[in-house]
Design a binder for these strands. Structure first.
Length: 175
DNA sequence: TTAGTGATATCC
DNA sequence: GATATCACTAAA
């Protein structure tokens, strides 16, 4: 028996982002800091980004150096720098060649995608790494079920009206 | 409400 | 090469 919760398996992420995103709410992020300290936070909010046809998705304009991990098989991290300041953490989902992912938008005690990565000292070094084969960072299952609300996604004013209106943001309710 | 921050994408 | 943009945050 291990001292720490086991990593969610890769298979968990090899499904559609719209299935994974709500299920990830209530799960935990487990971060082993370089010094050895283990920090575990419960995920309270996620968003799904679904393919090149989703104008809010980074892959909307095709594959680039930055978004390459989105095109990988589900079960890797996609971490990128936003506004030159904030690292944003995503889990890539779905099958290889279909760019989709789930943004981890907030954790208990750390509202905001940039604040949770700062709290956990997560940076670009994790992008492209397997979620179940990474020493320092993993996801762990829920301890119990939790209700999930949906809402519009945040900060995507550049996307089409239709894509902005999609209820692809998932928020924990009554954790 | 607004500045800050710098990598990335997209244009010349 | 240059410039515009950006899945945000903190300060005011």
């Amino acid at each position: 028996m291990s001292l720490t919760p086991p990593a969610l398996p890769r298979e968990f992420f090899e499904r559609d982002a719209l299935d994974v995103a709500p299920e990830l709410v209530g799960c935990r992020i487990v971060r082993a800091l370089p010094g050895g300290e283990l920090r575990t936070l419960t995920i309270t909010e996620t968003e799904a980004y679904c393919g090149e046809e989703d104008t809010a998705c980074h892959a909307h304009r095709g594959r680039t150096r930055r978004n390459a991990p989105l095109y990988m098989r589900g079960g890797v991290f996609y971490v990128y720098l936003c506004y030159g300041v904030h690292w944003l953490l995503n889990a890539v989902t779905g099958e290889e060649g279909r760019p989709q992912g789930v943004l981890i938008r907030a954790c208990e005690g750390f509202p905001g995608p940039g604040r949770l990565t700062r709290a956990l000292d997560i940076g670009g070094e994790f992008t492209g790494l397997a979620v179940d084969g990474c020493e320092g960072l993993r996801f762990a299952a829920r301890e119990r079920d939790c209700a999930v609300l949906t809402a519009r996604r945040v900060g995507i004013g550049y996307a089409s009206e239709a894509d902005q209106a999609r209820p692809w943001r998932f928020i924990a309710s009554g954790l």
